[in-house]
Design a protein around this nucleic acid. Structure first.
Lengths: 337, 337
DNA sequence: CTGAAAGCGCTTACAG
DNA sequence: CTGAAAGCGCTTACAG
């Protein structure tokens, strides 16, 4: 059933029916006519075609969301936050998984743009992201979530990574550890980079000598990469008693590596994660980690992009959420040596 | 940039440009003209407006996907499977979280329909689902994934729940357990209902007396409900040595409950889950569970709905995937009593 | 308060 | 091989 169809049945003009269907313009129509229209529409289960409306108004009320991997447990809560907030304002999210490959991401962005999204929320940003340039050229409203670019050409909502790493460092220092290794996440990502800097900054603030700032690289935020990175760290720094992992997935990989080497956590080595993703309180041992407000991050990202759409500019901003330390069983006083 | 804009620049008719843009009709246009059009389009970064095309052709190439809760780790892999398959065929998924409330789900379905989705994949189905009736009335292509209705008015892709429960039952029986409790999931859902039946059937097949078919109900598939259900089971059946949980979340709730009661798993009580969701191999103890092919389920659901869209009817079907038992540390020989 | 008309950006049957 | 025209279902400036 269409506007035209209803109009014919009712013997009025389509524009009259159209005005009744929109609460904003309903008052322009006589009360009696409006009631007849409404009744007839309900009778036929009339559902306005939003695509046609979008074509006409050049507003789809759709926000595209690009994720690197929905299977990574940090993203569902972010997505939930985005959706909750968008829905409140009459928007929907068009979510797609694009992986980490820029070519594929570009393709996905083009798909989203071809579908006339009003704005884009990217959870895929790298520190120097060619895809973002592409989006900017297209002139869509744009916000980055969870990760940010180094340049500030686009607004973002992120965790305060320095603060998070400082919490982790101070926790193990307070326990009495002096030989810490940071399992560094991908340096192409702001999270990996800033956590590394945060680690170095926190150690410096506590007067730790440069030579005692131990690092081991992980190629990706995966359990497997964490295992490899941890094995490497154990080889190179046998003196280490605490591992600060770049995220929880890496921390779980550490568990694998420690088990392989016959080391116990936390008796031999303490481990701290990052994210507090679901169920890390159930692993063995329960993971001490830095909790990031992923849902809130999604909400803020949606609000930010909506503000852009309303033209409430105010320039590029970066919104940083404060993380929180969650102490569980994977950290303890260091072993005697 | 639009077709019209390009046509004006090139001095040809919009329909000519349109024909060039579509690979299917490109051959209708002279080689030389086609090349000029393509070059000009590339130069302006022309991106066809799919909404306009959808309006005209009455085909959006969008499939709506409704999930109860993206935060539940079983859904991301399903979603990934759906997206992978849809993308191959030029479709995109419009994913929304709707929770378990039918009124909210109805609202969400209406949103999706208003956005002109060609088809719907529901991961929210209940055994008798009013929302499905609503979808059917609207006349969209429709498939149910992971869960199914009791009536067979709609095609579905599900796990073979009887087979899964039989694997679980035979595993603990083989270990020597004789007093099993099944932590029953919600009976409004096909998964909860069929796993319960599968449990009863498997026990019957092994000649277990009716009085030894122990059950405890859980109100939802959550860790908290699993804890409550397990506590209840421990009170009512102190003789039980093995718990077969309706899903992994319930199984994790059992871990909480057992810990509260000072019982060890698997020494005092064995626990089997269902789903093999991510990271249950890392909990303490690693969970023995029934692995369900969620990604494959998503792929099949997408294929099925695409087949419907192509008009390859063949009536309503139910595709059942075979589960697989994954034995880990949460099951062992029963304690001496 | 209501109607007539134009147009959003495409696609496609019909001509030539 | 190319063009002219109609129309998908809306919205909205303009009349009356």
């Amino acid at each position: 059933m269409t506007l035209k169809g209803l109009a014919e049945i009712l013997g009025v003009h389509t524009s009259t029916v159209g005005r009744v269907m929109d609460p904003e313009t309903r008052h322009m129509v006589g009360e009696e006519v409006a009631q007849r229209v409404l009744k007839e529409a309900a009778k036929h289960g009339y559902r306005p075609n939003k695509m046609a409306a979008a074509l006409r108004t050049r507003r789809s009320n759709i926000v595209g969301v690009m994720l690197p991997d929905i299977t990574n447990p940090v993203f569902p809560p972010i997505l939930l936050g985005i959706e909750d907030e968008l829905r409140k304002h009459g928007y929907v999210a068009l979510v797609t998984n694009a992986g980490e490959d820029p070519a594929q991401q570009r393709f996905v962005v083009d798909q989203l743009l071809a579908r006339q999204v009003d704005a884009l929320i990217l959870a895929t940003a790298t520190r120097d992201d060619p895809v973002i340039g592409h989006c900017l050229e297209a002139g869509v409203a744009l916000v980055t979530v969870n990760r940010s670019e180094d340049s500030s050409r686009v607004s973002s909502v992120v965790n305060d990574e320095y603060a998070g790493m400082r919490l982790a460092v101070e926790h193990v220092l307070a326990l009495g550890h002096s030989q810490l290794v940071h399992l560094v996440g991908p340096q192409t990502l702001s999270t990996g980079h800033l956590r590394k800097e945060g680690y170095e900054l926190a150690l410096a603030a506590h007067g730790v000598a440069r030579d005692d700032v131990l690092l081991a690289e992980c190629s990706a935020y995966t359990r497997e990469a964490g295992r490899a990175g941890c094995l490497d760290a154990l080889d190179r720094y046998p003196q280490a008693t605490a591992i600060l992992a770049g995220n929880d997935l890496l921390a779980l990989g550490c568990y694998d590596a420690l088990r392989e080497r016959g080391l116990r956590c936390p008796e031999d080595v303490s481990v701290v994660g990052h994210n507090d993703m679901p169920f890390v309180d159930m692993v063995n041992p329960p993971l001490t980690t830095v909790r990031i407000g992923h849902h809130a991050m999604g909400v803020q990202a949606a609000q930010l992009v909506l503000r852009q759409l309303r033209g409430e500019g105010g320039g590029q901003v970066e919104i940083r959420l404060k993380p929180e330390l969650v102490v569980r069983g994977s950290t303890a006083v260091p072993r005697k040596r």
